[in-house]
Write a protein that binds this DNA or RNA. Structure first.
Length: 635
RNA sequence: GCCGAUGUGGCUCAGAGGCAGAGCAGCUGAUUCGUAAUCAGCAGGUCGGCGGUUCGAAUCCGCCCAUCGGCUCCA
């Protein structure tokens, strides 16, 4: 028996050699005691698997690879259980994913949570049966015949899609067999703690034109404590949901009267206005000019921009004086028209025109999601017109700007590069130049990125910045799109050094993405406890009794004059009650005032995270909070 | 748009053919209190909408709308 280790070494063992001996052999530096501890304490964390050569692999769950094997074998066990309970079900695919695994089934029976317990019980039986998992390699014809006989048409389709010379392997565990490249655990007995999470529809092969299958999502861990920890974190994460916090903190509402059209409440507007102010400041520094273009423009414009042709399904229309108009789904055409006012010299370029543009897009009803995916949103857009020689520097400038903003909020992000989609405008050559320009900028910055083939905008390729929400779903926020189509379509020109007209290149870009989505991400990131500079209410004065109202009012007025967003809780409630309310509202500072404070012109400061900080002279506190706000401390 | 689930006062939820309920929030009054819930009273709902079955529907059936979890699509 060949055994390969994580360090890459491969050793030959006699059959029947124990795992203990193998590990001891691989890690001679470990004392016997340490080895014992390793087995006793975290025994289940070490597992064996049949690898792609049919040899044995030893891994730990902590490795990405080991975890994937564990989850993938869990998926097979779940599929086996489903097949036992619901004969006639057809199998599609069942991979491991970041937080667990899923398996897609085609079944007459609609799976629901009430089936989960039965399926989990059957999985437990399969684990208890400790069925050896066996790898077999078969010829293409054998595999096709077998799955045809079993009427597993999805497996047949998968095999037909494999290259001629592909090695076809099967993994067999008792009454269950699956087409699979592996690797897998050496037996079902090594599995533990498999929990079914949810069921959802998913198209076969991810295409809307195919049949919709039933996808059961589940997860698994080698130790119960790990599963409990995961479920606990999931519950905690739900408390950060911006839809829940948005209601609790009075930031925004979504109503049946306008699905996907958010209403911003006074506190939400304060937050939003702070973001706008910050945005204007950074853009002014970065050399942008601000413009504003109309929301409704005529049909001719949208035909010229290509939106009428390529984007119509997502647009809202109206008729004015018997002429067709459309509500803008993007800001660029308006920006083009502004550029076209008058002649431009090469000396004016790059010209950076920013616009907080309200756009409307008719998104499918099923995709709406709080503030993250809406039908009306304001993009913090900008269009940069430039000479071809300025492309690289401008792209890098935008990357730096986005990085600066995200870093300041403390957001981790990742990058994706999207290339030419099917439904696109322009020549192959133009797309190649544009795509390479983006790639080059990323490479020169030394930034890692993922490529999304065919995911670009219809007018050009793009670099997307993705941020994560509380449940680790990622949302595209910032984007940089290089466009060689619009300048052509709108016949944009500049006068070059040679006195001739030339075609400028254009970048579309957003930093926040949209105010709506960004506020959603921001809310979840901070769990509603926004840094003081963003907090809708920055301080709340809490008089201990009615006797202290007068002094409280004085504190309030002084803070307000100092530019602090402050309010008084004048209700005749106990201090504890008011503190609780203030904490739940995540107000950064609660200022308790009673006799002591009134006598000494001070406030008893309570910070929402640090708790009671004791009394401070009022003017010292004012200075501190002003400093904290003006520095935009991420506290 | 597709698959599945859900929809009862502002919020969180109970009620599963026979009088629409609780807690919190709100209002009124009492209490005047030192760092996460003071007490009492009052008020508040065409049970998402429309239609059907029934002597009788929040409850059963159908259609629609919205929301939630995914898929597809996207800032």
């Amino acid at each position: 028996m060949k055994v390969s280790f994580n360090d890459g070494s491969i050793r030959e063992y006699q059959d029947g050699t124990t795992l203990f001996q193998m590990i001891k052999d691989a890690c001679p530096e470990l004392t016997k005691k340490a080895l014992g501890a390793c087995f006793n304490g975290r025994k289940s964390d070490l597992s064996t698997a049949i690898n792609e050569d049919g040899a044995l692999d030893i891994f730990t769950f902590e490795d990405d690879g080991g975890r994937e094997v564990y989850r993938h074998s869990s998926a097979h066990a779940m599929a086996q259980a489903v097949m036992r309970l619901f004969p006639g079900t057809r199998l599609a695919i069942g991979p491991a994913i970041e937080k667990g695994f899923y398996y897609d089934f085609d079944s007459e029976h609609a799976f629901g949570p009430e089936d989960f317990i039965r399926i989990e019980d059957e999985i437990k039986k399969i684990i208890k049966e400790d069925i050896p998992i066996v790898r077999k390699e078969v010829s293409r014809d054998e595999a096709l015949k077998m799955f045809r006989d079993m009427e597993e048409q999805y497996k047949v389709e998968l095999i037909e899609g494999l290259p001629e010379d592909a090695v076809i392997s099967l993994y067999e565990q008792g009454d269950f067999v699956d087409l699979c490249a592996g690797p897998h655990l050496s037996s079902t007995g090594k599995l533990k703690n498999i929990k079914l999470m949810s069921v959802a529809g998913a198209y076969w092969r991810g295409s809307e034109d195919n049949k919709m299958l039933q996808r059961i999502y589940a997860t698994s861990f080698p130790e119960k404590a790990m599963l409990d920890d995961y479920l606990y974190k999931l519950e905690e994460a739900k408390k950060r949901d911006h839809r829940k916090l948005g209601r609790e903190l009075g930031l925004f509402v979504l109503l049946d009267e306008g699905p996907g059209f958010p209403f911003f409440l006074p506190k939400g507007m304060v937050l939003r206005n702070s973001l706008e102010r910050f945005w204007r400041e950074v853009h002014d520094e970065a050399g942008y000019m601000e413009i504003r273009t109309p929301i409704i423009l005529n049909r001719e414009l949208w035909e010229r921009s290509g939106h009428w042709d390529k984007y119509r399904d997502n647009m809202y229309f109206t008729v004015i004086d018997e002429e067709d108009y459309a509500v803008k789904p993007m800001n660029c055409p308006g920006g083009m028209l502004i550029y076209k006012q008058g002649l431009h010299s090469y000396r004016e370029l790059p010209m950076r025109m920013a616009e907080m543009g309200l756009v409307h897009r008719h998104e499918l009803s099923g995709v709406l999601h709080g503030l993250m995916r809406v039908r009306a949103f304001t993009q913090d857009d900008a269009h940069i017109f430039m000479l071809p020689s300025q492309i690289s520097a401008e792209i890098k400038g935008v990357i730096d700007l986005i990085d600066k903003v995200y870093t300041m909020f403390g957001f981790p992000y990742h990058l994706e590069l999207s290339t030419r989609p099917e439904n696109s405008m322009g020549s192959e050559e133009q797309w190649e130049i544009a795509t390479n320009a983006l790639k080059q900028a990323l490479d020169e910055k030394g930034l890692p990125y993922k490529i999304n083939e065919g995911d670009g905008a219809f007018y050009g390729p793009k670099i997307d910045f993705h941020l994560r929400d509380s449940l680790d779903r990622t949302w595209q926020c910032g984007t940089i799109q290089l466009d060689m189509q619009m300048p052509e379509r709108f016949d944009l020109t500049y006068i070059g050094e040679d006195g001739e007209r030339h075609r400028p290149v254009m970048i579309h870009r957003v930093v926040y993405g949209s105010f709506e989505r960004f506020i959603g991400i921001l809310t979840e990131h901070f769990a509603g406890a926004f840094p003081t500079w963003l907090a809708p209410v920055q301080a709340r004065v809490i008089p201990i009794t009615e006797r202290h109202l007068e002094y409280a009012q004085k504190v309030h007025d002084i803070l307000k004059d100092a530019g602090i967003r402050v309010e008084i809780d004048a209700r005749s409630e106990k201090v504890g009650y008011k503190i609780r309310e203030g904490q739940l509202q995540k107000i950064p500072y609660l200022l308790v005032v009673g006799d002591k404070e009134a006598e000494s012109d001070s406030v008893a400061v309570r910070h929402r995270k640090d708790g009671d900080l004791g009394a401070r002279p009022l003017y010292d506190f004012v200075g501190d909070i002003q400093q904290e706000i003006s520095s935009r401390a991420n506290k």
